[in-house]
Design a protein around this nucleic acid. Sequence first.
DNA 1: TTAACTGTTGATAC
DNA 2: AGTATCAACAGTTA
Length: 284
Amino acid sequence: MPELPEVEIVRQRLDQVLVGKEISEVKVLRQKSFQGEASRIKGTRIESVERRAKLIRLRLTGPDDLLVHLKMTGQLIFVDGSKKVGGGHPTDDWCEQLPGDHTRIIVKFVDQTQLFFNDLRVFGWIKVADDQAIRQEFDKYGPDVNTADFTPEYLHKKLARRTIPIKQALLIGSIVGGIGNIYASEALFEARIDPRQPANELSLQELERLVKALKQVIKQAIKSGGTTFDGSYLNADGQAGNYQEKLKVYGREGESCPSSDCQAQVEKIKISGRSTFFCSSCQE
DNA sequence: TTAACTGTTGATAC
DNA sequence: AGTATCAACAGTTA
């Protein structure tokens, strides 16, 4: 479920702990999860950890870098064996040992620390890629919502010929960078916009509310450590986030609308096959 | 038991 | 160019 906030939190932590480390070995436990030649990055060091949309880039000292997409269930968990074992289950006190059943890749460093890539559903991947390939990958995405480039005017232009529901449009990566199913519903609720409304029919004023809401929701989610359901998202230390407690509508079908003096219930509908939560009384 | 569901995105056909 | 549908995979829930 990692969306921009979750990926950003992982990035920040990895940037703290990985920079300067030299890769000693890349263990590929599941071929499908790794693309390119792992041997080519052996002996290089991590220069920095960056993010674009939901992609994480590990910048390396050699000609190639590592690019990671967590997709639905990917995790990047850093373990320093000399300290406490990471990968704890959010609902349990005991700590799960890594590698686990869903560990697909292990990046080992010369100082004996390790980075585990876990991915239950095997949609995610890590690949070796040079600067040009990564640029190409990045260029497919629209501006991240937490940047200055993401404005009401930009959205207005991009949505001009889109007749699909606004909720669906928010999930298109080439338009909006970093938004997924959870935060799309949350931001539309915050902006008081009906998720079913055709994207090209939103007024500039509505788009202003939407852009503001997206930025705000993402900021708060980062502050709260991201959203964790069923332990599928864990940060780089193997810990769950807290934003699931702050969600206003996502996953809250049948609960009363969180707006003060609204008596309606949160509804759940499908928009292009994806669950969408909203209040039909507040959002129009 | 079976079907439907789940955080993402890319390919394909119209 | 934009839209609808399906697919990748593995697990949980009705």
